[in-house]
């Protein structure tokens, strides 16, 4: 199993992790070892086997369509890194036009 440096950087980008070069280098080797181990799965005969998505088969439970109290806005915002006017505040989402 060989992963290129570019592949690892691309995965980090998908995972929203701004990794340093030394981290990317280390992960390149570590992921390869782990994924190689995982490739053993290919030896299992799974033809016709339904994937198991849930440990205990249960029907989807419904609840009554009732309004219930939820977290007050002030409490929800109490641990926010930045908040303004009852909202979570974040940096610009869209690049400003230059």
């Amino acid at each position: 199993m060989v992963l290129t440096r570019e592949e690892v950087a691309e995965i980090a980008q998908l995972a929203r992790l701004a990794l340093r070069d030394d981290e990317l280098d280390a992960l390149r080797g570590e992921l390869a070892v782990i994924l190689e181990h995982v490739e053993v799965l290919g030896q299992a005969d799974t033809i016709g086997v339904e994937p198991m998505t849930h440990a205990v088969p249960t029907a989807l439970r419904l609840r009554a369509d009732q309004v219930e109290p939820s977290l007050p806005v002030a409490v929800a915002l109490a641990d926010a890194p930045a908040a303004r006017d009852g909202c979570f505040e974040v940096p610009a989402i869209i690049k400003a036009a230059t």
Binding site: R16, A18, A76, D79, A80, P81, A82, F88, V90, P91, A92, I93, K95
Partner: peptide
């Protein structure tokens, strides 16, 4: 965004 540590960044994806 909602809790915990926030790093720097001028745009959301960078943050």
């Amino acid at each position: 965004v909602r809790f915990g540590h926030r790093g720097g960044g001028r745009e959301l994806a960078e943050m």
